[in-house]
Design a protein around this nucleic acid. Structure first.
Lengths: 198, 198, 198, 198
DNA sequence: AATGAATGAGCATTCATTCAT
DNA sequence: TATGAATGAATGCTCATTCAT
């Protein structure tokens, strides 16, 4: 991974600047300066400011997908998988506040602003959840009447809102582990199939 | 309250315009035109563009708080109360797409941009959830180990993400009722205290 | 004619600036400064830079048309009318070098750049020539085989090229009167109908 | 002269590009692409963009001078020579629209923009006209009082304006021959010396 | 000689805000 | 109170030119 890879350098700089200032308040020259590149150079790699934003999503969320997928490949138990997903997501957001802000704030902007942008990587990322739920249903672990398409939204929304509060406030009332357990437990119990014995 | 109340007219116009174009793409002149008022007049009622945005939240979310509170006052069963909250929130978002967009997108922007803005009304709105949960816990209905401060975020995040998807796509795969039942059930089962029999 | 007529002030400033620097090298801020107006003010009166250029033509050439028409209204002899036209054109170009440059250089640019611009005023101005020629033909003064549509171009082209050289060089080898007589004579003799006696 | 002569290739490419887009809208990269050469290569042969423009004139108009001169060398009758000049000019402009546009529009720009540029080739080209006129005067064919310095401008201006209209409009109301005859006849009759008989 | 990636100065246009009326 | 013309700071993007290879 050479330091001279301008494309990557710009993406990283943009993530940082978008997170700090927001898309609209970020100036191209801010990104250029952060990437230690001339303003014009940016336009050798991206078509326009929106294009940079979208690339940030695709690349950064693409990275998330990759990492989460790798971890999940080693696990088969749906309940544990859901916990892994939540843990990964929240700890990534905790570690990479820039990415967190970009996902929480700018992602929403972009969906609205750029109608043609389909958020492919994001869909891919969120669909990992429904895949796990379906797996759990096929194994009789999760209730059959749970709609994976709705549950995935509820689960992601819960995680997202929690990480959103984290980026806002410096003080953390609860630890990461504690929070994960809380959220995952609610969903696990909430989706659990009734056992005979019980 | 006459329709000539300029303040109210501007707030309503701003809600509409912010929802349609987003805060940054909305022009003061757009709001002025929508409110049938001169550009300069807006500055007789608001300090600047941000001030309008904040006022929009305060007023619109204040309205939400009021309506939800009124409905909840007639109910005492925590599980039913949670369902009422969810139903109210989602149906309001469904009905008032402008408000929905403003909450989902601009709320995040504003929290970020205006550090001094405390989102009082929004906190009030979201704290209704934790109040219900605490009530449920005191009645032995919800598990004691549920942290209301975390659960309220998870619950609101789930609702918010779902209404976000609604504002984006025209086609609705699931009905409102179906969706509400799904989400509320997950949380209800998820937070339920274990019964003796079981 | 109030000095506060911004529209007129901007047109005049633009004529001056375009003449001095050429359309492409002229900056909006140059025009604004010359017109003693803020940059943004220009956009209250014109859509864009091209629009200013076109307006300059329409107004300035409109003025030419008006003045020439007025003078010609007092004359009925076609040969004298042609001389009046030439005299007016050349002396105006001599007097108003800015307008001269704008006509010679920018008019050509604009016709090329803005395909949809029809140069109405300019056509009107040049058609005065063909009208005179037709009049002369109907009176048997000019040859019948002269095509007014071609002759008008030749006549205007001759005048234009001459005034072009004037704007370039400081030294004038010939006087204005001398030059007018030369050019007009060529065309008058050149278009004359053969007399019986001859 | 091999096609690998970069200098020539660039000149030809520039002529084409300047004609199509105009000097200011033409990009160096456009010329480079048209010449199948790298952007930087152009700067091995020319100092800057203006330099290319000037070179285009010198070379292209030089070619005109050469061709016209060759043809005129075979003729000695001034009236016929003038007709040859007009015919050559107009048919060249008709055939080579790129050159025509460059002469009509960019020539004027350049004269203005680059004060130090003396347009030597262009002067040479236009002076052919005055040379012919002087020849005609020495032979008693053209009137003595015609000033060749003025008449050459009038003649060239007439031809130029006519070819300008050609480049603008697709439809041609008159044929080339018809037009040439019209223009040349006006000037011939217009400059004719009075015959004894008359 | 040739390349083309990189540079960074330059500018048209927008729009929040002001203020004379 | 209300207006809306006027302001001018701010910025995304272009492109002539350079220079390391």
């Amino acid at each position: 991974m050479k330091t001279t890879d301008k494309h990557t350098k710009i993406i990283q700089a943009a993530t940082k600047v978008f997170a700090k200032k927001g898309f609209f308040n970020a100036r191209i020259s801010d990104i250029a300066k952060e990437a230690k590149v001339a303003d014009g150079t940016i336009y050798l790699y991206f078509n326009n400011k929106f294009d940079i934003l979208i690339s940030v999503f695709e690349e950064e969320i693409g990275g998330l997908v990759e990492q989460v997928s790798k971890l999940l490949a080693e696990e088969t138990e749906p309940r544990k998988m859901l916990k892994i997903y939540a843990t990964m997501h929240l700890s990534m957001m905790k570690k990479n506040k820039n990415l967190a802000e970009v996902i929480q704030i700018e992602l929403r902007q972009s969906t609205k602003l750029i109608k043609e942008y389909r958020n492919n990587k994001f869909s891919e990322y969120i669909n990992i959840i429904s895949t796990i739920i379906k797996l759990g249903q096929s194994q009789g672990i999760f209730r059959e009447d749970i709609k994976p398409g709705i549950a995935k939204r509820a689960f992601f929304g819960a995680l997202d809102e929690i990480s959103r509060v984290w980026t806002l406030s410096l003080k953390n009332t609860y630890t990461v582990d504690e929070t994960i357990t809380q959220v995952v437990d609610i969903f696990l119990f909430g989706m659990l199939a009734p056992t005979k014995k019980r």
